[in-house]
Design a protein around this nucleic acid. Structure first.
Lengths: 204, 204, 204, 204
DNA sequence: AATGAATGAGCTTTCATTCAT
DNA sequence: CATGAATGAAAGCTCATTCAT
């Protein structure tokens, strides 16, 4: 939760190697998450990476490009992971669980900082960058909608999938603000709770 | 969703009169919400209020003091409204509905922008300001916990109230990003949906 | 030496009554001396006087006018006191002593703060204000020169009166930075020391 | 005496090379002396140096840091020069003359502006900066006291060295306000005059 | 006379970005 | 590729002065 002084203490963000580019993105996700994008200077970022601020601009066109890359990398990496899991699931409810678990993992695991940046620094993006990122996001949301519609048809979910997804989305995203792993609640337990919200069991 | 050019187009934020102070806070809630705190300059703010930037500092000590005031005003106003509603409710479930509806109103009604600022600009606050605002928030959260514990004891809620509240909190807070009034979904309808998440009906 | 919070703790500056004007000048001498003219705001000044900052401008045209008044008042008051003492002195050496003692009094007594302001804030004055104050100063300096020339002619002073005066002037002015009354050194003792510098006794 | 428009017209301050840092300090000494510290803007300073105002902050942390550096540089440079001269002097009286001449040189020579800033802008320093500079000053004053005590013991000086030094200090410091080189009075002649004050000859 | 909100120019400082080395 | 000095626009904030009350 606190801001670290060395990159080594920051979890290796999923899918990012130790290339300069990867190191910058990891540091950026961390700082943007904990200090905010505007309050993070390129000097802060360079210091954490261990280079000079001018050198950042050999790897990225601008500070905003770094923000965009953090967001895109996070979406892409998690989307592909979740698609794999989806492919392995066999029932609609298993698919929903895969989505819930996958989204929780993306938010609470190694890509958590990047995902939080995606939420909290959304309007630091220029309109055109928002467009770019939105495209990726829409693909991903379409998955959710597909699964929820299946469940809606079978009667497991009573409410309009679009709205229901958004409520769940909020519940899941917010976990980054309170959930701490290694406590009484495991990621599986948390998934159970969210599933209990998503698909109320009417077991009589 | 877009940023307005005149204060008159901004909803009168609950509890704020037309005094200079009130006008500044309304404008600030609007701009901080849509541009972010850091990207809003005191000149932007002054322009929207219709005064000179220097004049802001007759009413507030600093830009951050404005942010704090926006947050505190919103919490205080909504908390008192919700306490009134709570007092009128008679069953635990009615009390929960009062909380859910009240929180949705605070987020989607006239204080919505201020409430979003509370969420999204939290770490623009200095540590000491966070402390101050946290105190107010804690009082409010205690209400929720009390009601959820009642429902937990009667068996209406199966999961630990503390975690359950946080999931609901996220689901509700997120509505500011997608719910638009006057569409197919009314505030009451939305409340029904959140209640369906919060207290799964096991009617068989 | 420290900056006071109430006018009552500041010595009544010679010649200034308790009129608003007098109160302002006393407060100004104090603050300008200890904080500097530029670092003293009109609000600081008003607070110490016990009025609002806008009200200062009913008594003085501008902040600089207050500075000028502090200086002029100090010169005028001390000049007339010193002229009286000069008139009572009968030998050239007595006259010199009157000048030395009078100047030390002006710097170390109730008008000390104002006199220090005269020295240290000289180039806070606009050129035209410098002219005005310089005129008063020149009259006063003419007295000194007259007396020193007398002593030069009698052989008591070997060096050119003009230069000699300037060296003495510096020695005396500087006492405001180190002399504290009520210690081992009285004002008379200090006068003796300065006289020893001014008129080296060749008693064999 | 007037404020110059180009750095080339300002005497090279002792010990300062043509590095950016040195150029800033020379310009600062000049402007702080003639306009006062508060009335000198960083833009004034940057313009005289020939850089942009933002660039100043690559070399110094703040405007005050520039003021401190001007003072420290002046003290250090002159102190070492004076210590060298002291080492070459053989009698107490020669040592005093070395001190007087050295101090006059520091005030009237290339470091004169910086030395005047040291006197006139003393309370523009924050308390902690005053502490820092005071430490250097104290070392220097200890030299003076040592020499004056020698002379006091031999009877050349009748008055307490501590007080005597302060009177001399004022007389010497003040020369910056009236002495102009190249006139009828040389620096050696001025030194003679100050020595005549400091050690009255009782030649009978 | 006194008030105190408002002004608006100007202050120091910050910072993403550039570019000669 | 990396550096780090330099840029210059823009930020938050200050403050002497004005003026309707």
């Amino acid at each position: 939760m606190s801001v670290h002084a060395s990159l080594d203490q920051i979890p290796v963000m999923g899918g990012l190697d130790d290339s300069p580019r990867g190191r910058v993105l990891r540091a950026a996700a961390h700082l943007f998450r904990h200090q905010g994008y505007e309050r993070t200077t390129v000097r802060d970022l360079a210091r954490l990476v261990g280079i000079q601020s001018g050198s950042l601009f050999h790897h990225f066109e601008s500070k905003e490009a770094i923000l965009v890359a953090v967001m895109e990398e996070a979406i892409r990496y998690n989307f592909s992971r979740i698609q794999d899991a989806l492919a392995r699931a066999q029932t609609p409810e298993q698919r929903l669980r895969a989505l819930v678990f996958g989204e929780l993992e993306s938010i609470l695991g190694p890509t958590g900082e990047a995902m939080a940046v995606l939420v909290y620094e959304w309007n630091a993006l220029s309109p055109s960058s928002q467009q770019r990122v939105l495209k990726l996001r829409d693909e991903y949301e379409a998955c959710w909608l597909g699964v929820l519609e299946e469940l809606n048809k079978t009667g497991s979910i009573a409410h309009p999938p679009f709205f229901w997804r958004r409520l769940l989305s909020g519940a899941i995203a917010w976990t980054s603000n309170w959930y701490r792993p290694g406590r009484s609640l495991t990621l599986q337990g948390l998934t159970d709770m969210v599933m209990a919200m998503a698909v109320p069991k009417q077991d009589c």
